[in-house]
Amino acid sequence: MSTPPQWLPWQSRSAILSPEPILELEGLTKVYPGGLKALDDVDLIIRRGEIFALLGPNGAGKTTLIGAVCGLVRPTSGTMRVFGHDLATEWRKARSRIGLVPQELSTDMFEPVKRAVAYSRGLFGLPPNPERIEEILRSLSLWEKRDERIMALSGGMKRRVLIAKALAHEPDLLFLDEPTAGVDVELRKGMWRIIDEMRDRGVTVILTTHYIEEAEEMADRVGIISGGRILMVDEKDAMMSRLGRTEAHITLAQPLDALPPELCKFPVELEDGGHKLCYRGGDGTGKGKEEVAALTKALIAAGIDYTGIDTRESSLEDIFVTLLGEDGETA
């Protein structure tokens, strides 16, 4: 059985990240023969030991970006460096340290699990290491299925086989392209545990997803891509702090015609014919909650009674939607 992962506070994890860049993309552009610009002058730096989530809608360029780094896509222009190696000239050294789990369940379905994983290790030029293969298969709960043909496994297990194959050559940088696409909630959470274990082993993980909750749950840093352009890259917490908002709706016992002067210092406005007081402020760090508490005290001090408070913190999804909306407007 695999060892349960050690869940650490995300904040502390971010703090222990090494600033050393292991992937550097500069001006990366890909224009497909039909004229579609899948990547548009992408600059990106990935640091050792982090989990980086690349968020974007379908067709945003996530898979093309991964393909360019992993050798599946020929970039039109730009430079890519992995562990200091230029991918154009030192691709052998660079690729030997990269693992890829593709979005599609692409593998020889007639092959037994163990042989398929051993093949992947050999393909990357490493000598056979049955102990290491066993360790990988056990960590992914595949050891019992080692002699079964991949076609006989469930969808979730097939995806784990792909992860095992990608880990067989002990990569330092692992790309997971939509690792939880089409899997149920339980499997998705299992996959998150696996990703977390990989990070604990020191593997840097870049995952693409269009599940916002996945990025929110897993990532140290988040990049948002749309139309082939990176719109924003930041620490998840910093992004939440910078772009996050608190929203509070206070239902008043008696409607107000106008805002009393005592409340004007708060970012509030009257709604629903003066029956509700709406607060929109804060920065995602808890400042909003503090202001809402202060607001309620101010209401009481002003003799304004209320019957209910409904507060909500904006999620990464709100930020994502807002950014994509702005991008759509400016595009």
């Binding site: 050798g71 030997s96 890829l100 692409s106 992947s120």
Partner: peptide, 14 residues
Amino acid sequence: FTGTIYELLSAPVG
């Protein structure tokens, strides 16, 4: 055809 060529293309083989 099956897409498994990704493994070959992403490996350090020429």
